[in-house]
Design a protein around this nucleic acid. Structure first.
Lengths: 349, 349
DNA sequence: TTGTATGCGTTATCAA
DNA sequence: TTGATAACGCATACAA
């Protein structure tokens, strides 16, 4: 069989009409067979299926989406998919969505709220059924306005947006991990602990800072204000400059322990340390970082971290979107963090 | 203005019809204004734009795509977006596509050719205009058949598919980097160099192995067959087991230098080494890895690598898709690799 | 059980 | 220059 002339003319996709013609039935019948409609005779079913096989037909999701009003696609909006953190989440989300027949449309905002907003509108115009997102600035009015105008299934990735009760969220319990980190360091004798954190317009950094302070209070230790460095963004550049600034402090006020607020910050921090040559991590300086990455595990000395399952966060986010699309109410899932003790934090001498 | 009743009834999206009604003109006129058609009076233009603003209308890309026959979306198909290598490429591709108004639909195959094929079909049915892909197995017949049936703009990411002359490609010049790596090691006195590579059904690994052998020939050194380990996949697990096997070799045939064929392999390799406690990289054992990552730079000692600009590869891939969609002929771009000498490879003593 | 007709939102063709 | 209408591919309400 040469499969009719559908294949010749400019390689037009074979449509449901072609199948109907080939089978000698109405398009609606073809549609019913393809959608497992109850009222189809076995005979009709076979004729259509034969035609489908003969033409190698596959449903055009564009037409189907337009008609059904659902695209079976979900947007994924983060500042940078190249960041291991978000890459892991994207992976988790995609694998879960793929199983359900959904596709993931990925967008980077590069930390720019304006691009966040543009992407939200674009994805909305693409009619994605849902949106998994970690906005760059929880307080940005444009972003918030764009989000409230949506009627899509929304899942926040470690973000907190007042005024969006319709949104589900998957959060990490940063507080517990940060508390454990501070306790660990204090237990080792440290009193001057520095925190290299990110903007407080983002939930993770806010929660970590709060926990950092609370842990100090609990241990009755005063937080040194100039040891709390809040970067405009948790980048390697910030990690490096902040570390350099801390190292330049007079010995009597210089921190004896550093807490890095993210994997990119850690990179910059280590660069600064390696450049300076001293102090040496695990000897003259103790170090704890947030989020476990191969670099932390395989560094010498191995770096103690506050870990969380980032891939799982993505998977849960996907499940939350799907359950929302199936009619469930929005809800928030909080995943644990845990302190993984290695040897970068040592007793103060 | 209350913006008509469009907003009330179940939050239906405002369509071009609503705009036409609001402006008191025909939908075709609205469409013309929105698409900057030459023949529109300034007066009409203003009336429509006012209505658009009043209703806060935005074009529905679903209807537009169906009618135009183009979705302004591109598929991105790799084995694992969580792998830094692919995450970087995705980032580069997305940022370039975003500027052109295109969206990126990401898919993971987990190294399974069957999932490669399913995703290709799915993306095709979604009518993506183009496809950027690094298939899991260049020799898989299903994958190849699915690809030849497409009439989309195709861009291969460091892959070589005979029988697909219609595809553009962005390649890395692994040969040059690998040659330099072997030369570097041989120059340091090494004669027993091990290669931990990936499946030869993938271009990067094939080209690296060829260059590895060629460099040996050029230096008139025999390649030790049992020092060439080809994993079923370039994973951390393979890196670890292969390294363990090499370390178990009798001292007189044990390699004095290792070349890791990827960032995941490096992770497993280092784990095995750290577990064994000896030999020590940069002292008793020399090491070179493929693809630069923070772990390589910040490891102690810093690891010599064959680097390439992975983000740029993604950007170039996006440009190749776009130029193809604009009617240009398919072409292949090869990007350089270069040896970044650090201190993990030392003179044999 | 099957076929006919309509509409999803948009754009392009055609006539006015 | 503008408006009416058909068509993109599909799924459904309704008629037969």
């Amino acid at each position: 069989m040469d499969g009719s002339r559908a294949a010749v003319a400019g390689r037009r996709r074979v449509s449901i009409k072609d199948v109907a013609r080939q089978a000698g039935v109405a398009v609606s019948s073809v549609s019913r067979v393809l959608n497992d409609h109850p009222n189809v005779s076995a005979q009709m079913r076979q004729r259509v299926l034969d035609a489908v096989a003969a033409l190698d037909y596959e449903r055009d999701l564009l037409g189907s989406s337009l008609r059904r009003g659902t695209t079976r696609s979900v947007g994924f909006l983060v500042s940078d998919v190249a960041n291991t953190l978000f890459a892991d989440m994207a992976k988790g989300a995609e694998s879960e969505l793929q199983q359900a027949g959904y596709s993931l449309v990925v967008t980077n905002s590069d930390g720019d709220p304006a691009r966040d907003e543009r992407s939200i509108r674009l994805l909305s115009n693409r009619r994605v059924d849902g949106l998994i997102l970690a906005v760059s600035d929880e307080t940005d009015p444009q972003t918030n306005r764009a989000l409230t105008q949506l009627d899509n299934a929304l899942v926040l990735l470690d973000r907190e947006l007042r005024g969006l009760p319709r949104a589900s969220a998957v959060l990490a319990d940063h507080a517990t991990g940060m508390s454990a980190a501070v306790d660990h360091l204090v237990g080792l004798g440290h009193r001057r602990i520095a925190l290299l954190g990110g903007p407080l317009t983002l939930r993770p950094h806010r929660e970590r800072l709060d926990a950092f302070k609370a842990a100090h209070r609990r241990r009755k230790i005063a937080v040194q204000p100039d040891l709390v460095l809040i970067g405009p963004t948790v980048s390697a550049e910030f990690g490096r400059s902040a570390t350099a600034r801390l190292l330049a402090l007079p010995a009597d006020v210089r921190p004896t322990a550093l807490i890095s607020g993210g994997n990119l910050v850690l990179i910059g921090l280590l660069r600064a340390l390696h450049e300076a040559g001293a102090p040496v991590v695990g000897q003259d300086l103790s170090l704890v970082s947030c989020d476990d990455v191969p670099l932390a595990e395989l560094h010498y000395p191995p770096i103690t971290v506050v870990a969380r399952d980032t891939v799982e966060m993505g998977r849960v986010a996907a499940r939350l979107v799907l359950e929302r699309l199936h009619g469930a109410n929005p809800r928030t899932v909080t995943l644990p963090t845990q302190l993984v003790v290695r040897s970068s934090a040592v007793a103060l001498r």
